[in-house]
Amino acid sequence: MNLFRLLGDMTHLLCIVVLLLKIRTRKSCAGISLKTQELYVIVFLTRYLDLFTMYNSLYQIVMKLVFVGTSIGIVWYMRYHKVVKQTYSKNEDTFRHYFLILPCFVLALFVHLDFTVVEVLWSFSLYLEAVAILPQLVLLQRSRNIDTLTGDYVFLLGVYRVLYLLNWVYRFFMEIHQIRWIPWVSGFIQTALYADFFYYYIKSWKNREKLKLPA
C-alpha cells in the first residue's frame, strides 16, 4: 500500500461522504445523476464478489463493505426517500446508461485475465467504472446552476482517479515492473473523461465564479 493509493481511497471515501451529507442534510439530490449512482452500485457489486472468498486484508473488507453499502444507500435515498426523490433532476438525467452496460459486458467476455465468473465480472466492473461518470457529466452540462457540493463531489471523484494513476506509476517503477493492462487502461480512460470538467472547475474556482460547463 503506497501513499498515492491510500490517499486515493480516502479521497474516494470523502467524496461519497460529501454526497451523502448533501443528500441527508439538504434532503436534496438536485444535480446528481441517479444513473451514475446506479452504475456505481453495479461496479461495486460485480467487483467485490470475492469479498468473502479472497482474503486480502481487513482494510479491503471494510472499504469494500463501505463502498457497497454507501452506494446502495445513495440510490435508495434518490429512488425511495419521500422528500429526496422529489428533488431528483429526472428530466435532465436522461443518459441511456443501459447502453453502457452491454458493451462493457461484451468487452469483458473478450478481454479478461481468466474466463471465470469472478475475472470476467471484475473486468466488466473496471470497464463500467471507466464510463460510469458520463451520465453525471452530461447532467452537469444540462444543469443551469451547479451547486457547490455537486461540483466538489465530481471534482473529488476525479482527484481519486488521478491519485490511482499516480499509484500505478509508483507501483510500475517500484513494485511490479510490468503493466496491468485491464485496470490501468480502463483507469486512464476514466481519468481522461474528467479532463474538461477539471478545466472548468479550476477556472471557476480561480475566477471565484459559479461552475458552468458548456452545453
Partner: peptide, 10 residues
C-alpha cells in the same frame, strides 16, 4: 503470480 494479485486494489 502477480496477475492473480491484480485484485489487490479496490
Amino acid at each position: 503470480d502477480p496477475e492473480s494479485k491484480a485484485h489487490d486494489e479496490l
